[in-house]
């Protein structure tokens, strides 16, 4: 990653500060630099005239769109991922990756909106409850149906959703019967757990029950290290 020119830059800051003064913003190879105030003022005036994302307020209640619009976009996402995948595993993996990048964003947004009461989750059960309740409510308008711990293994938990919103209008063809497109939502969960340092792998499985043909169980398997850390902390 470091090329000869980078090394020269770092060791001769006086030379480079004049060269790089043309671009504001943080440059990791240079560290914090203080631009001359005249240039800062110039930057400030150009920045305020352009539209930027920082002027947009986060605290107003999120508007809504039609669920079918989301379903169409999700459908297109599945079709695109399918084109480049050779099987169900790979397709679910791609959907998981797409959801994984969204997880931390959702988490930070929800926490920010909590305002003064915001707190971080530091216990395993609490982060799962946070996902089951807060995350589900923000994304899908209701809490998830069940949160369970597996009786067979201490590193396995399950969140159940009887009627997952995103896959409501998706019908999986018979020859892909094992596919559960909620791999995307599994990715969101995995993304949240990973940044909270509760690393896990999450997968979505269809477990039908009478009356709930779309019932999906999100199977969460925590890394061994995480479970050991939790046990150490709580002297199990």
């Amino acid at each position: 990653m470091s090329q000869p020119s980078d090394i020269i830059q770092v060791s001769n800051p006086t030379q480079t500060s004049t060269k790089s003064a043309l671009k504001g913003g943080y440059n990791p190879s240079l560290g914090p630099i203080q631009l001359p105030t005249s240039y800062q003022a110039q930057l400030a005036s150009t920045a305020s005239s352009k539209r930027n994302i920082y002027d947009h307020s986060l605290s107003r209640r999120a508007p809504e769109v039609n669920l079918s619009s989301l379903s169409y976009i999700f459908n297109v996402m599945i079709q695109y991922s399918q084109k480049n995948s050779k099987g169900i595993q790979e397709l679910e993996g791609k959907l998981n990756t797409l959801g994984y990048s969204i997880g931390p964003k959702v988490l930070e947004l929800i926490t920010l909106r909590e305002g003064k009461n915001a707190k971080r989750e530091i216990k395993l059960v609490e982060i799962l409850q946070f996902i089951h309740t807060q995350v589900w409510r923000t994304l899908f308008g209701r809490v998830a149906d069940e949160l369970e711990k597996s009786s067979e293994a201490d590193d396995e938990y399950m969140i159940t959703d009887k009627q997952p919103l995103m896959s409501e209008f998706i019908s999986v063809p018979k020859d892909m019967g094992q596919l559960n497109v909620n791999a995307f939502v599994a990715g969101i969960i995995e993304g949240i757990l990973d940044v909270c340092y509760f690393q896990a792998s999450v997968s979505a499985h269809t477990v039908e029950t009478p009356g709930c043909p779309n019932r999906t169980v999100f199977f969460i398997k925590f890394d061994r290290d995480v479970i050991e850390r939790e046990n150490l902390r709580f002297h199990k």
């Binding site: 669920l67 994304l139 308008g141």
Partner: peptide, 28 residues
Amino acid sequence: LWKNKADKVNSELFTLTYGSIVAQLVRD
């Protein structure tokens, strides 16, 4: 039509889902 016949969903989920598709396309 919007009030009565549309099932509503959080627009941020919509924005983030579309965003991750575009970001993936740019990478691909």
